[in-house]
């Protein structure tokens, strides 16, 4: 892992809304192909942080570099899986997955190949022509996640994508996201407030403080996959993170 190149560099990122300091001098790196989870208390400026990373808003100070260049959605591919359902209702499952690739004007063969790959990874062959209103919430979210992975993004941001799912569905989807991540080699930044989820998914967990958000700790999770929540080492790491945030 040490020799891997750095994909995303976040340098001294600061955001103020007027006098309100939301994000205070946050710096970290993400390696290519790494799966990083960010945990932080509700209202710690998490959304602001994500909006900065996707360039939906501009930082007050600091910079975000992807492959050494300032992040730009037009140049880089940054995918975002939002918390709320965001599959386009006027597109079928397949068309939703193709969407980003079409916007990026990738060649037709690549779009077809990549879409097929994602559809088969998700096991959505039967439902490729279904519209979101014909799907359950979890299936819609899977389509959205497929759409995000289809781009082979430089950076894939996920904002509590399983916040609305029940526990059984979560386990299933967490395994699925790991499968997609492995198959596409994407670099993933996954936000959650579920510490077990973070320990289960991440190679590294970044713990944020209360507002103004800073990075409080950086915890490596070097466990083999598939992970077991009952593994003593898993429990130790989860407890370590829990200790760190008891003071929220």
């Amino acid at each position: 892992m040490e020799n891997q190149e750095i994909k995303v560099q976040v340098n001294h990122l600061t955001k103020r809304f007027g006098d309100l300091l939301v994000l205070d001098d946050v710096s970290f790196n993400i390696k290519k192909g790494e799966f990083v989870c960010i945990v932080g208390p509700t209202g710690c400026g998490k959304t602001t942080f994500l909006n900065l990373l996707t360039r939906l808003i501009e930082p007050t100070e600091g910079e975000i570099l992807i492959d050494g260049e300032p992040a730009d959605p037009k140049k880089h591919s940054i995918s975002f899986v939002f918390q709320e359902p965001s599959a386009f209702p006027w597109l079928t499952a397949q068309q939703n997955i193709e969407y980003g690739l079409k916007i990026k004007k990738r060649p037709a063969e690549e779009i077809a190949a990549q879409t097929e790959k994602i559809i088969s990874l998700l096991g959505l062959e039967k439902y490729r022509h279904a519209y979101p209103h014909e799907m359950s919430v979890s299936m819609e979210q899977r389509v959205v996640i497929g759409r995000a992975f289809a781009l082979n993004p430089d950076l894939l941001l996920m904002d509590e994508p399983y916040g609305q799912m029940d526990i059984k569905m979560r386990y299933y989807l967490e395994d699925e996201v790991v499968r997609l991540w492995k198959a596409t080699g994407s670099t993933v930044l996954f936000i959650t407030h579920n510490l077990e989820e973070a320990t289960y998914l991440a190679e590294r967990v970044l713990v944020l403080t209360n507002k103004p958000a800073k990075i409080k700790a950086n915890i490596e999770v070097d466990l083999p996959r598939p992970r077991k929540v009952s593994d003593p080492e898993f429990i130790r790491i989860r407890k370590e993170i829990t200790e760190m945030i008891k003071w929220w």
Binding site: T54, L56, P73, S77, F88, I103
Partner: peptide, 21 residues
């Protein structure tokens, strides 16, 4: 807004955001 943000983060131009979303 979430649909527009999906388009925007995918790199859609203002016109593409209008046309596709």
């Amino acid at each position: 807004a979430v649909y527009l943000n999906v388009a925007k983060t995918s790199g859609a131009s203002t016109w593409e955001m209008f046309w596709t979303v």
